[in-house]
Design a binder for these strands. Structure first.
Lengths: 241, 241
DNA sequence: CATGTATAAATGTCTATACAAGTTACGGCC
DNA sequence: GGCCGTAACTTGTATAGACATTTATACATG
C-alpha cells in the first residue's frame, strides 16, 4: 500500500491511510488506536516514521496522543466528519444571560493589571474570580472566567451557587439591572486548560469574547472572558439580538 | 546554557533560547537565521534536536523554514514581540464602511449553494464576487470576499473601482442606504491564500465575519465574508458603535 | 549574453538504537 | 479486602548516520 520513491513522503501516505480509516469509522470516538509499534509493524516502517504521521494527525485535531497511554481518536473528529452544516449558533446576548452552567472554581485573588483596569480598581485590590462552563444539549459551549470587585460583592460566590444565576445573585447587592459596555472579540489558540474544558484539540482556534458589565450608574461590576469552540460555534451579533 | 536532566527537554530549552534571541531583536525581520548545522554545533546537540526546536518555533509562527534555503525570521514576529498592548481594535461598523481598500480580484460566477441562500437567489444564478484587502497604517487588517447579485448590479465592479467605495457605487443603482442584517463570527485556521494575504503564519487563527446587507426594502444586496488577523485584531461589538 | 551544467549547501526523509518517563495491571503482602 | 511495589507496556527524548530534494552559485559552453 505504501509506495516508496513515489514523490510522496512515506509518512504522508501513512497519515492519509490512517485518516481514511478514521473517516470510515474504523475506530469509535475516544477509542484507542493501535500503538506506534503496531502501526510500525503493519506499515513496515520505523517507529519514527509513524510518529511523524501521527504528529500530523494530532496537529489537525483528528487524534490525541497521551504519553504512556496511547493514541486516541478525538471525539471532536466526529463533528469534523459531519461537516459544517450542523454548526450551531450562539448569540452574544445569550452568552451573557447564562443558562445551565457549572461552576468550576471560585476564589478571591488580587487583581492583575488588566482586571484592575477593566473594573477601575487599583492593581492588587481583591477581586472574586469565578470560572464556569456553559452547556447546551450536554455539549460544552463555552468556558467563562468572570471577575467581580470582592469588596462590593462579598459573599457573591455563595449567592451565585445558591441561585445558579449571576443576575439573581446580583440583586441581593442592590444591582437591579446591568448592561454590557462593549464586547471585544479575538481568535486565538487555547491554552491547555481551555482546550481540555472545551474538549477540543489544542491546535483548533477558540473565539475569545471579553466584556465589561456596568450597573445603572455606570460603575463596572463584572469583567468577563468567555471562550467558545471557535469553528463549532457561530457567534451571532446584531439583528434581532 | 543547556541543562541536561533538568526535567525540561533539551529541545524545549533550545526553543526558548532561540525565542529569547528573537525577542531581543538578535535578528532582523525576514533575515536568515543560522543553519541547523550551525545551531547544532553551537548548542552541542544533534541536528535532529535542533529540528525539533525549530519545528516548534515554526508552529508558533516565529520562524519560517524553506527547504534548500534556510530558516527565516517571520516578519510577523515583530508584532508578536511588541506584545499585546499594541493590539489594535476594529469595530464591526468600520469593517463594513470600508476605508482604503485594494481590490484583488473581481469576477462573475454562478452562485454556490451558500451564497445563493444568503442572497435569496437560485443556486447557479450569476453573482459578482469581489475580493479585497483593507489596510490601516499600511498594515493589512482584513481580507474580504463580497458577493452581489450580478443581474441587479450589472457593471458594479467598474463603478466600485471608479469610486473606491461600495456605498457610492451602490447609489448608482438606486440603493440609497443599506444595513447589516446580522453578523456571524467564527474562529478558524486560514487557508493558504488567506494566510498569505494577511501576511500571517498558517497556524495562527483568523476571525471570520460573515454578514448580509439588505436594502431599505429588506432585499439582500450583499453577502460578505471578512477575515481578520485573529490575535492581532480585536473586534469591538456594541457600546458606542 | 544566455543557457545549461556541475557543485556545494541547506533542509527533508527514513532508519536504527538506547534510554527516559508516564500509565496500567498484576501479584504479593499485611 | 486493601495497599504497595514491580513489571510490562506505551509514548517522549536524544543520538547517529545515510541519502533525497531543493536552492543558490560558479563555471563552462554556445
Amino acid at each position: 500500500m505504501i509506495q516508496r520513491g513515489s514523490g510522496v513522503a512515506v509518512w504522508r501516505q501513512i497519515e492519509q491511510a490512517i485518516e481514511a480509516e478514521i473517516a470510515q469509522q474504523h475506530y469509535r470516538a475516544g477509542e484507542r488506536l493501535p500503538t506506534e509499534a503496531e502501526f510500525a509493524a503493519r506499515f513496515e516502517v520505523n517507529r519514527h516514521t509513524i510518529r511523524r504521521a501521527v504528529a500530523a494527525l494530532e496537529t489537525r485535531g483528528l487524534v490525541r496522543v497521551e504519553q504512556g497511554r496511547g493514541i486516541f481518536l478525538q471525539d471532536y473528529a466526529v463533528h469534523y466528519s459531519m461537516g459544517k452544516r450542523m454548526r450551531f449558533s450562539e448569540s452574544l446576548k445569550r452568552l451573557q444571560r447564562e443558562g445551565q452552567i457549572e461552576v468550576l472554581r471560585s476564589q478571591e485573588i488580587p487583581a492583575s493589571a488588566k482586571v484592575a483596569q477593566a473594573l477601575r480598581l487599583a492593581e492588587g485590590e481583591r477581586v472574586l474570580q469565578v470560572d464556569s462552563l456553559a452547556r447546551a444539549d450536554g455539549r460544552v459551549v463555552s468556558m467563562t472566567t468572570r471577575f467581580f470587585p470582592a469588596q462590593r460583592f462579598a459573599g457573591l460566590a455563595e449567592a451565585y451557587a445558591e441561585t445558579g444565576s449571576i443576575t439573581s445573585a446580583m440583586q441581593r447587592y442592590g444591582v437591579a439591572d446591568y448592561e454590557r459596555l462593549e464586547s471585544r472579540i479575538t481568535a486565538r489558540l487555547p491554552d491547555e486548560a481551555v482546550a481540555r474544558h472545551l474538549q477540543r484539540p489544542k491546535n483548533q482556534p477558540v473565539l475569545q469574547v471579553e466584556g465589561i458589565n456596568i450597573d445603572q450608574h455606570g460603575v463596572p461590576i463584572e469583567f468577563g472572558i468567555s471562550r467558545l469552540a471557535g469553528d463549532a460555534v457561530q457567534l451571532v451579533v446584531g439583528g434581532e439580538e
